[in-house]
Design a protein around this nucleic acid. Structure first.
Lengths: 338, 338
DNA sequence: ATGAAAGCGCTAACAA
DNA sequence: TTGTTAGCGCTTTCAT
């Protein structure tokens, strides 16, 4: 029965025969192992090319005890944040000639357990677990292979989590605002129970205190444009100049806020400066004015986590705890009165 | 050398020994093959559980000549459209117990060739190639395994491409508009050279003709909000009532358009109805008013393509040409004057 | 510098 | 109903 598509079943043996050497020699020649005469190596290479030899990676994995594959398990289904993360992960892995097996946990613990088992059965060399917000998620537990959590951190401090530094990002925003002469700052963000909301608030308050500027308001709601617009109305209602800068927990909020302010007759950035978070191009660039924002550098985060995983697979110590990577300030027009 | 993580190297032999049977029997028992006494099957199962046996999928693949893995190759890097597609693909594959190997071609032909070779070396059972727009892409050529193109179609009519029906989607929009009494329709869309722009225009014009309503304007530009706003100004400049409905080629355009119209003093949907395309929640729901739009059913597209691939892997005829799946109308507030 | 042989962990045909 | 025996295609000692 098996596969009826055995047409291209060229094996090391075929190559060996054509090159007039043994299978073992073919393996060495093609993988650059052992001591081979250059002439032999070439002859093998030519034979392989001629036969369009495709080394069976499955057999190789079995023999070598290593699959050159890592699993990527998403906590809560694919989100917008997953994309840049994946890109970075692929960057690192591709360089190491390892492939990515994709598993979408969809926030379902059962589904996740299933996938985890599957990855283990497939003998992946390591696993990266991604979440979509910095909030913590349950550890997948002790596994015989290295695991790294990215963006969403593990609740087990013994695991390694790589994420962006929300506090630092918030500080960056405040310092930028203060540098441009703003002194009465507000913070408008998502749900109070989200870790990212909290961390950014901490950074916001700490930086404001350090700079000696007033925290004029803190408004917590949802991660939506609609909430940004609502917050804008609340802010606009306060008599003139009570707030001259707003740091928003997301670009969506920031966008809603700028729309709301504009419609309330408040000029951005002349009267009020606005800084967002995420550097989500489609929001930040379409906003009027385009948003100055904090970029969590998701691609780099993915790259960093995957390269740590690779190192661990190659025997390095994986490390533990939360590694927070710095965010970056991206300046557009919403924060700089000209 | 090899892997130092051989701790959990429980094999069929270990299970066989514990259960007091032969390795062959373990295989049959665990995979439900052959004729086994129920009692034996149970004993084996218990032994396997006790030893926490993880059947080595690599060895199985080698023996069986099938990897239960398909490759997913993205044409032009991960885009917003890739996410729902992936979700659907995973839906179908997951049910068939097959995993997905992810490869991001990033629009680089060289990179793509490399990945293709890698997938072949890994002996995937099939490949799905995704693009982000319905526009055509180069075929990956004849491969020893089935390949299906999704969203982005192959330029080789001998390949199978699964995509959404843009013309039908446009017709849906027009029919909806006409049903609500609109008679002077405009089409505002992306670049003229994009296949999706063209197909939607064809559907738009055909449906307008069929309904006997006027095509008041066709404005082609870019896929951005900014273009939507610009178009709104152009439309608003025409003296009152020249256009009473606009079908947009994307939700981004539609959103920019509604913003532009509102700011020009044109009321949506009272004076002008607007219908978008994509049903991209973050745009459609945040727009004011929320957008009526055409949903290309991307998740279903992914599901459909993957299930066809699975069938082909199991020996069915793959079929060829472009299979266009119908879009769906999603009604919100931008099109229905109350 | 190269060949021979064993084995990675599983499945599947054939025997018993 | 179960056990035995060959492989699957590659890598890797160990001889030569």
């Amino acid at each position: 029965m098996a596969s009826a598509r055995n047409e291209s079943a060229v094996t090391v043996r075929d190559v060996a025969q054509l090159a007039g050497v043994s299978p073992g020699t073919v393996s060495k020649a093609l993988n650059g192992q052992g001591q081979l005469r250059e002439e032999t190596r070439q002859r093998v290479q030519e034979a392989a090319d001629k036969l369009r030899f495709r080394p069976n990676q499955v057999a190789r994995s079995l023999a070598e005890g290593r699959t050159y594959t890592v699993g990527m398990l998403t906590s809560d289904s694919f989100g917008r944040f997953t994309l840049p993360l994946m890109e970075g992960i692929e960057d690192s892995l591709g360089a190491g000639k390892v492939s990515t097996l994709l598993c979408d946990g969809r926030g379902d613990p059962l589904r996740e357990r299933h996938y985890l088992a599957e990855l283990l059965n497939r003998r992946v060399d390591g696993i990266v677990v991604t979440g979509r917000r910095p909030d913590a998620r349950r550890s997948v537990g002790q596994l015989p292979i290295p695991v790294v959590y990215v963006l969403g951190r593990s609740d087990d401090p013994g695991d390694l989590s790589v994420t962006n530094d929300d506090e630092q990002g918030a500080r960056l925003a405040v310092e930028h605002l203060v540098a441009h002469g703003r002194t009465r700052l507000a913070y408008v963000s998502g749900p109070a129970h989200h870790l990212s909301t909290q961390l950014r608030q901490q950074g916001f308050e700490a930086a404001a205190a350090a700079a000696g500027v007033e925290v004029a308001d803190v408004l917590l709601g949802r991660w939506s444009e609609a909430w940004g617009r609502t917050a804008a109305q609340m802010l606009a209602r306060r008599t003139g100049g009570a707030v001259d800068a707003v740091f928003c927990g997301s670009d969506q909020i920031a966008r809603g806020l700028t729309d709301g302010l504009r419609e309330a007759g408040v000029r951005v950035p002349v009267e009020v400066s606005v800084v967002g978070f995420d550097n989500w191009d489609v929001m930040a660039e379409a906003a009027r004015p385009p948003l100055t924002t904090i970029d969590p550098r998701l691609v780099r985060l993915g790259r960093e986590s995957a390269s740590r995983l690779l190192a661990a697979i190659d025997g390095a110590e994986l490390g533990q705890g939360v590694v927070a990577q710095p965010c970056e300030l991206v300046i557009r027009e919403s924060s700089v009165p000209t």
